[in-house]
């Protein structure tokens, strides 16, 4: 990608992301009063990650069947509260194993 096209994007991404993290720690030090806003903000991460994961994860390996194997393993381990690293690696291994089985 050309640098002229790239740099404005990366600048916008970095500045927006930094301001979101920085302003509440420096400028707005008062707690939020509205219960709705508070709840809304606390649910946002789950909604974002849910919408980003499905259905995208099903296409992340180039084969629906191997992706499904990875998703099943990741869901089971996450549900049990395993760490990020464990879940990420186990999902990759499940995809690799499924690929191996499909080659047989």
């Amino acid at each position: 990608m050309s640098w002229n096209a790239f740099l404005p994007y990366v600048a916008v991404m970095a500045v927006v992301t930094y301001l979101i993290r920085m302003l509440p720690l420096t400028a707005f030090r008062r707690p939020i009063r509205s219960r709705f806003v508070q709840s809304f903000l606390s649910y946002i991460p789950f909604a974002v990650l849910g919408a980003m994961t499905f259905p995208e994860v099903l296409y992340s390996t180039g084969d629906l069947r191997t992706a499904a194997a990875g998703v099943i393993v990741a869901v089971l381990l996450s549900w049990q509260g395993k760490s990020l690293l464990t879940v990420a690696i186990a999902a990759c291994l499940a995809v690799a194993a499924a690929q191996g089985i499909l080659l047989l």
């Binding site: 994860v57 990875g70 869901v75 879940v87």
Partner: peptide, 23 residues
Amino acid sequence: FVRSALGIAIYGMFLAIILPPAR
């Protein structure tokens, strides 16, 4: 095959963040 297996890593991490509190 290694590249396609790694493609799922980031989504595994997302699931590990959202599922325990969802449970």
